[in-house]
Design a protein around this nucleic acid. Sequence first.
DNA 1: TCCATTTGTCAACGATCGTTGACTTTCTAG
DNA 2: CTAGAAAGTCAACGATCGTTGACAAATGGA
Lengths: 197, 197
Amino acid sequence: MTENQPKKPSKSDRTRAQILKAARLLFAEHGYDGASIRDVAAHASIDPAMVIRYFRSKDELFARAAVIDLQLPALRVLDRNAVGETLIRRFLEIWESPASGPGMAILLRSATSNEFAAEKLRDVFGNQVRPVVAAVADPADPADAGRRAGLVSSQLLGLAMCRYLLRLPPVVALSHDEIIQNIGPTLQRYVVGEDVS
Amino acid sequence: MTENQPKKPSKSDRTRAQILKAARLLFAEHGYDGASIRDVAAHASIDPAMVIRYFRSKDELFARAAVIDLQLPALRVLDRNAVGETLIRRFLEIWESPASGPGMAILLRSATSNEFAAEKLRDVFGNQVRPVVAAVADPADPADAGRRAGLVSSQLLGLAMCRYLLRLPPVVALSHDEIIQNIGPTLQRYVVGEDVS
DNA sequence: TCCATTTGTCAACGATCGTTGACTTTCTAG
DNA sequence: CTAGAAAGTCAACGATCGTTGACAAATGGA
């Protein structure tokens, strides 16, 4: 087995990173179809052919750009009465902290017309959102956990759509506190509220 | 002034309607970019040139296909305690009754990558959702009505995204009753609940 | 220094798209 | 019946796109 390359900030790695950065920016802003490889190349000050060289195709470039780890906090059963607020606070970090990157915007922007993005988004739900919700929901009823996680996702994806993609004026105008105080209780009820059959 | 044409199901009107029907179907399923004029023409068993002849361009065809009237019930102050249920029931009709057509799907599918669709969706919010919510909210505070309508839209658009476009399995699996019993109270609180500054 | 590998440039390909104009067929009014 | 308008067909245009291959420049280890 060969070395993994512990040290190698070689020339190629830098341009590779430049391309990926430009791709993430443009995919997040214009979606899969709206961002052409030529646009990405121009933004990275490179030839379009290089984009294909480093990533084998536009699809693979998008797949690389769409990697995302929500890093949702592990909801402990202890703070059952604060899960709503905890979730909505993390949501705001993911979407508005520059450190988090535009990962979710990339997926959400393209999920309506690109099946790969849609599938990836369903994966994020199943592997990152659902387990976290399930940890505080009824452990004896896995279907219930899925339902609760689905409700949570419907509210959070809707808020993201209205605030960051559609830019609905009254939703953009909401302050962080207003969002927390309004959406938090909704999520709280979805996760731990006593609901229906 | 000439007659308006009270009777004229002429040949052209029929093909014109066929084209529009095919366009609405394909735009709703694949979005603005994903549905080509050639696809629409094939679905209408017609030549692509005819699509341009009847509608002047793809943009105008989309504009014609994206016309929508939500026909939201006028919320009277009387039934203040049922606005949530009323709204979510109408939501289900709009999205699942064949009579309503795929109007909202057309807009939502393209709104993330097509500025016209996004603007049109903001129009629907401002002219159809917001006034209805404002009718039962505090009439002395128009900004408050906008905020409440925005919250309502975030939940409803998110539900539509998850259930009809993204097709998130647990959200697709929800029965009408489950949706009404879970989303209804959320909308109720957004519209008439005592909230924050 | 020399040479092989890497990195980058350039022009072009085939495909798809919206759109156009010339042409033919079909329908209908006088 | 016939002329003219309406409806429909066909081939092609220019543009954009993802992708490719041939070629030039730069780099770095021997």
